[in-house]
Design a protein around this nucleic acid. Structure first.
Lengths: 156, 156
DNA sequence: CTTGAAATTGGAAAAAAATGGATTATATTG
DNA sequence: CAATATAATCCATTTTTTTCCAATTTCAAG
């Protein structure tokens, strides 16, 4: 059974609450109710089980310079600090997005359509528009790759 | 006995459910009722027995960098996460395609004609139009290849 | 402090969608 | 051409999603 896979369409209520589908909900709760919200530079909001997020962060620490004694180092700390936040999945299976995260993700005020994308280790929350753009970007990449492969199959 | 071979024409009902032919159904159930749906960049949806999919994925993982801390890493996770999903074949021999996968395959809303293509390790679901286009593309590719091979046989 | 207003939260009701099964139609076989 | 098997459609039931409302908390002003 694959976890955190597939795509859901759902909606965020006017208070920034998202009800997860039973499938994703099960994927999360099997790892505990604590999750971490993290704003991605792609313009979406990622949701990871807490233990998963901690592992990701640790891996990054090994490779990146995160000292507070440099401009770049401080900027990195600022990034993962400001754009990450712990949340808890409620008894009704809902997650609340903080105001700043809603803005980052491009979700306006009021009820909003939303795309929940499984990324194997968690999910990402996208506006339909941004997800469509991302999908298209991946699709174009695939087209180039297909042409390359077919070309390679001919030239030997 | 060849498994997952041949082509079926069938239809998807308005809820995105596909009833597999007895032949393909037998091929699947002999390997268990759990399958994985996977959206192909060609614009079709593949259905593999779960164990087959896991083997394919494992092979891929060996070469790919899957860190969530980079743009490229996240994009890889998004690829394999978003466009794959576990499903179970029901007691009536049906599979339900999630909304997003229906869209990917070009299947509109409502009842739809569909081509089920055996690909030896599983099946692929195509719209009749796209399958026809793909068939033609393969045919043309082969023609070019034939000419090349015959040319190569003459030179030297 | 105390009170009032606004925002947030939890939960329930209503609406929509998905599911399982059975019936009807179509095709295949002898 | 009849009998059987397969495929497609339909409908009742269940599940899921969405919307709404009441209770609680938070914040600010008096």
């Amino acid at each position: 059974m694959l976890t955190f896979c597939g795509i859901d369409y759902c909606s965020m209520d006017s208070n920034g609450r998202v009800k997860l589908s039973p499938k994703f909900l099960e994927d999360f709760t099997s790892k505990g109710v604590d999750v971490v919200l993290h704003c991605l530079p792609e313009g979406a909001v990622a949701v990871y089980p807490e233990e998963t997020y901690l592992r990701i962060r640790q891996e990054r620490e090994l490779t990146e310079n995160r000292a507070a004694g440099s401009f770049v180092g401080r900027q990195m700390l600022r990034r993962s600090g400001a754009w990450s936040q712990s949340e808890r999945i409620t008894a009704q299976g809902r997650i609340t997005l903080p105001q700043a995260f809603r803005e980052h993700g491009g979700f306006g005020t009021g009820s909003q359509k939303m795309v929940v994308v499984g990324v194997e280790i968690g999910v990402e929350l996208w506006t339909p528009e941004r997800w469509e753009a991302e999908r298209r970007r991946m699709e174009e990449h695939d087209m180039v790759k297909r042409d390359q492969e077919m070309q390679a199959d001919l030239s030997f």
